[in-house]
Design a binder for these strands. Structure first.
Lengths: 128, 128
DNA sequence: CCGTATCCTTGATGATACTG
DNA sequence: CAGTATCATCAAGGATACGG
């Protein structure tokens, strides 16, 4: 590109697309649950994730289905039954999640320390 | 926890905290640039990332500094010079980013295929 | 150069109610 | 059960202008 041209987001950060794909809001809890517990129904997912509303859960599930990270199976029964299952493509993210988990246990405490240190040195003058 | 209690976000997804930390908006381009090109000044970061505004860049840099993922060095010169550099803690994310990059090249095409297939089968009736 | 201060817009989310 | 529809909210981000 020309020296004065702005880099595309892709050039600025090659992992930007996969970050959007995998780490947008609610996607990791959904994929994590499906990876841990296998096939799950809509309400089971809803309960495992805890605070998500049905509308948003539906949106995210549709997106993840379209991206090929999970599959949706509709059983025409009464009452209806819909099961979600992680796909092979979704499962291929498991090592990544494991790495993240390891990094987390090793380094999150350091992050906490850094925050405390920062807050200590950048504190506004005491109100005494 | 009780069977009818909602799981905490932490229980629902153990990697949620690190996702917030590392994959919130603009953090990966910033860390990527600092990891690739070493010590960078404010404007250099601004130009490498391309579309970020100074206000938001400052916000993200402060957050990453507080979290201990980068360091900020102020040189009292005229004109002033400020340099940002990735910290050891930040650098410890490099293997993770590398894994993401590999996953990306291997699997993003599959995601594209899945999207095309989904759009094909879920297309609304043609407008002809 | 390296930011801050304001104002403003918008898209994502939550709340609530309802249907096949 | 598995969603959809509608409305309200709200904070992150962008635009712009200015300051040390």
């Amino acid at each position: 590109m020309r020296a004065d041209a702005l880099p595309t987001p892709e050039q600025a950060c090659p992992i930007a697309p996969v970050v959007d794909l995998v780490f947008s809001r609610w996607t990791t809890p959904i994929l994590w649950a499906l990876n841990e517990f296998g096939r799950l129904r809509f309400v089971e997912l809803e309960r495992r994730i805890g605070t998500i509303t049905p509308k948003v859960l539906t949106q995210r599930l549709r997106q993840l289905e379209r991206d090929g990270l999970l599959t949706r199976t509709y059983h025409a029964e009464v009452p209806p039954r819909v099961e979600y299952e992680i796909s092979d493509l979704g499962r291929s993210l498991a090592p990544l999640f494991a790495t993240l988990s390891v990094w987390s246990t090793e380094n999150l405490p350091k992050v906490e320390e850094a925050r405390s240190a920062y807050d200590e040195t950048h504190r506004t003058l005491p109100l005494i």
